[in-house]
Simulated assay, not measured.
Amino acid sequence: MALRATFVAAAGSSSVLAERFEGDRPLDRAGWSEVQRVAHELLPLAAADLRSCSPAPRSRATGEGPGYAPLVQPALRDCDMDRWRGLPPGEAMAREPGAVDAWLAGPRSTPYGGEPLPAFIGRVGGRLDTRRVEDGCGVVAVAGPSVIRAALVYVPRAPPATYWNIDVRSLSAIGVAGRAGGPLSLRIEGASAQAARA
């Protein structure tokens, strides 16, 4: 049984204030313009058998732009940051510098009281594993950069700390392919979408 999945990173925002842990802000005007500018490049992915997105408003709006009509999948939500939820990273650092340092240094650390990084990676990866049961099924999933980073760590079974070394740009597309019981492989797509933003 085969899997062909493509993750599309949700559009960004023009506002630095929009970057928050588990940010739940909708797509702003600049982000929507970004989606419209590259929608023609993302449109072919609308032919996927299954189209899903994370529950975050930016992910849902990004998926609607090229006409995916995605179904919300709770497994694609961001990492549960509990008491840091809604805070900009800089504010968390100002309030609790030692806790943020501990979190960055130890992937299993949860000074915020939420989901450990390995559990988050496993949750996202588990979604990939369950998709393998549908032979040859094409899947597109729109999610935030953190979710896609988790998938990129899961696929090659990289150490959780690798998560911090991956940069996922908005509206980039990363494909995952493989067969049941076998390893998954990655492919980078949508380079022209990124060029359109530059």
Rank of each mutant, 00 (worst) to 15 (best):
G136A: 09
V147E: 01
A61N: 02
E34W: 01
Y68P: 00
V38R: 01
G31T: 03
A119V: 14
V142Q: 01
A75M: 14
S59W: 01
P55L: 04
R85C: 07
G114W: 00
P111G: 05
G86N: 09
V100S: 04
A30T: 10
V147Q: 03
R131Q: 12
V100W: 00
G98K: 12
A48M: 08
P74C: 11
R123Q: 12
G126R: 09
Q36S: 12
D82W: 06
G31N: 03
G67M: 14
G125K: 09
P44D: 05
P57L: 10
E91Y: 08
E41Q: 09
A141G: 04
P145T: 04
A102K: 05
P74F: 06
G98S: 11
V35C: 15
A105D: 13
L71V: 13
R58G: 09
P118S: 08
R108N: 09
G122T: 11
A94L: 13
L50N: 02
A30P: 01
A46E: 04
A56T: 10
H40V: 11
G106F: 00
A143W: 00
W84C: 06
P88T: 12
R60M: 09
L43R: 15
G122D: 15
P57Q: 13
P88N: 15
L104N: 05
V142N: 02
M81Q: 05
L117F: 08
R127N: 09
S54C: 10
G67P: 10
F120P: 02
P57A: 13
L45I: 11
D78E: 15
A56Y: 02
C79Q: 15
V100T: 08
W103R: 02
A56G: 11
S33D: 14
G122M: 06
A69I: 02
R85P: 05
G136N: 10
R123L: 06
G31K: 00
R51Q: 08
G126I: 13
D101Y: 03
T130I: 13
A141I: 03
S59Q: 06
C79I: 15
G144T: 07
G113N: 09
A30F: 03
I121M: 07
E41S: 03
R131Y: 14
R85M: 10
V142K: 00
P44T: 12
P111I: 01
V133E: 15
V139D: 00
A61M: 07
G113S: 09
G136F: 05
S33Y: 02
E134I: 09
E115Q: 10
P57H: 14
A39S: 13
V142A: 13
R58C: 10
G98H: 07
A75H: 06
A61H: 01
R51M: 07
D49E: 12
L71F: 04
M93G: 05
G113W: 01
G138D: 11
L104T: 07
L76Q: 03
W84F: 11
P107C: 11
V147W: 00
P89C: 13
A61K: 02
G138M: 07
G90I: 04
A99I: 03
P70D: 07
D82A: 15
Y68D: 01
